[in-house]
Simulated assay, not measured.
Amino acid sequence: MKKRLLKVAVTTALTVAFAVPAFAASANPFSDVPANHWAYDAVNKLAQAGVVDGYADGTFKGDKTMTRYEMAQIVAKAMNKSLNDDQQGTVDELSQEFAAELNNLGVKVDSLQEQVDDMVKVSGDARVRYFAAEDAGDNTDFRARVNFDGKISDNLKFNARLTSGNMNYDGGNGDAGINTANVTFDALGLTNTIGRQDVILAEGYLFDTQMNAVATEIGGLKLVAGNTDANRIYAAEYGFNALGTDLVADYYKNDTADQEIYGLSTGFKLTKNLAINASYYDNNDADATAVSYGVKLNKLGLSATYRDVEAGAYTGFGALANDQQPSTLESGFKGMEYAYDRALDRNTALNVKYQDFEDQDGIDLGARTQATVSVKF
């Protein structure tokens, strides 16, 4: 087997800062904090990092004596920001120093939280992926996405996401634009989402894509109806626990392609560090099945899975469609898949996947390797 040296490029994490309206200074009910107090250096450090913005005019006067009341208000704002580990440690120390003042601010801090809850929240992720296959060469691509989540009313929320699409290192671009845009609301005990949304079913086997749909959830039951790539789709998933074992039952129907799949997957821990998983899917229309079973060492992030997927036992919208060539899926395949997952840093993860499959007749399909670094912000 031809050896390959994996080279995974790490993307520069995108940073989004939230600006929270500053409080104006008011009467001083506490003792002054001198400019040489340790907290001044700490707040100055946060100000230089853009975590706090100081006074109402947007300035931070590090050489001006502040009241403990003013300082506590600045700490309260910082407590509602997205912080890295170093910044979080500084804010934790400040919150301990001004614990009494923060407690006395109770109503004002709660009001600040309400303001934050009403704001449009911006988050996102970025990904660099290296892919190599014996039958298709290698490739590196990049994708960045930015999410916008907001509250229209107490019972109506919206989501929209911009994506760069998969951009190849050689200049090729994927489909950039808006790939989710939906509203969510509760009614009759159901949580409903209408619009273009992420749909993930059967841990990605049936679905791992976006589609225009209506989705409803209650407890462990999820129902989906929608369209994607000119296909009319209906799906249901129910997850529950029985005797300490997690079980998930799935149903998928593609009216356009006249395809119907039933599935059941399970997972349970043998020990604290060792987990077992298995799944079975049956496409009645094609008389085809897909079976998988494997183990995972949770502490090490290592897993090994055996897959046996007959022709016609996949949907075309799941994770397998991202891993394999269409011709491979159409003829079916079987073999081993190995994966390694590791957190590189806060909000940064590495996933390496190695697949060694043959077709249903025993012909070697060639090894396929994928390495991905993902960053959330």
Rank of each mutant, 00 (worst) to 15 (best):
L300Y: 12
Q325R: 13
L190T: 09
G316S: 06
Y280R: 00
L297Y: 11
G239V: 01
Y338S: 08
V120F: 06
L102G: 07
T228M: 12
I363P: 05
A313M: 10
T216V: 13
V52W: 02
M79F: 09
I363A: 12
V8D: 02
N283F: 08
S153A: 06
L344Q: 11
N147Y: 14
A343K: 12
V146D: 03
F268S: 01
T191K: 15
S374G: 13
A313C: 09
L350T: 07
V43L: 14
P34S: 03
Q88L: 10
K253M: 07
M167P: 00
F207R: 08
A257N: 15
G226A: 10
L5R: 11
N182C: 05
N166K: 09
N254M: 08
L320P: 03
I178T: 07
V8C: 06
D92I: 00
T163C: 06
T228Y: 13
V309S: 01
T191G: 10
L264C: 01
G335H: 07
I152H: 00
K108L: 13
T266F: 00
N231F: 11
K353G: 05
A176P: 07
I178D: 00
L14M: 14
N36R: 00
Q96N: 12
Q360T: 14
A72E: 02
D198L: 07
E114H: 10
D86P: 01
A290R: 11
A304S: 08
R129E: 01
A249M: 06
L112V: 05
G174N: 01
